[in-house]
Amino acid sequence: MKDMRYIRAASVTEVTDCLKKYGDKAKILAGGQSLVPLLRQRLARPGLLIDISRVADLKFIRKTKNTLKIGALTTHRQLETDPLIREHLPILADMEKQLASVQIRNLGTLGGNLCHADPAGDVAPALMALGAKLKLISATGARTMSVENFFKDFFETAIRPDEVLAEIDIPLLPDLGHAIYIKHSSRGVDTAIIGVGTFILKDHDTDTCKEIRLCVGAVGPVPIRAKNAEAVIRGKVVTGKTIAEAGKKAREEISPVSDLQGSAEYKKELIEVFIQRALKAASSGRRK
């Protein structure tokens, strides 16, 4: 039988040194909420587990002038309940409430969730809408990448075998900016059939949309932006008419993939409905 070894890392340097040495034979263990069942079902069989859960340097929520910096080991539950998050990025606290169960939120981490890259994950479309950036560290240095570029395929990311995700940087919402995440799932605490993260910024004087991001999860291998739909809204006043048109555009531009939660045909219908709902809620300023 194949032996699996275990290292409990104490510092980021220790993690990156280990990764440098073992590369893709090693697997990082953060909260374990996605990885442990994979190990159990023998779907993942790494030679080495690097347990990073005790690395204190990866646990923080800090506000800077323009951003919130969140350590990769921040748990879902911390995001849900942290006063800084609630004040500045309520979209994340709201998103977390609909994510899995309290037991899983207690241990599951933001970084672990992103690196697991479940195409139906809730975190990614919300962070994409916020324009978050990820800081990846390796023994040779650090690099930054937008969340949008991070996901490559089903359960696949741009992270290199020698890198660890250390930090998520989220720009603070500008004064007239609104961000929401809405989700459709059969029982309310389920994997998303569709999830839409939305950010919208309106001009104070003209009420036209200055900036918009519409990010759709659970419709394909990776969360994607509905760019044609965004184009309909950008630079215009958001009205029932533009919302309807954006919904149609999104439906045209996205070819969803069937999964266990819903067929491609059904997701297609939902794209239109949920883009519209997201736009309606975000533009009316409701921070859902």
């Binding site: 059969s186 029982r187 309310g188 605490v189 389920d190 994997t191 266990l260 939660q261």
Partner: peptide, 22 residues
Amino acid sequence: VFDGGRVTNPNLIDYKMPFAIN
């Protein structure tokens, strides 16, 4: 759910029983 004789959701995540909130 069966697909050609194969159960595609043989787990309690994709097989959906009601929770308390339901």
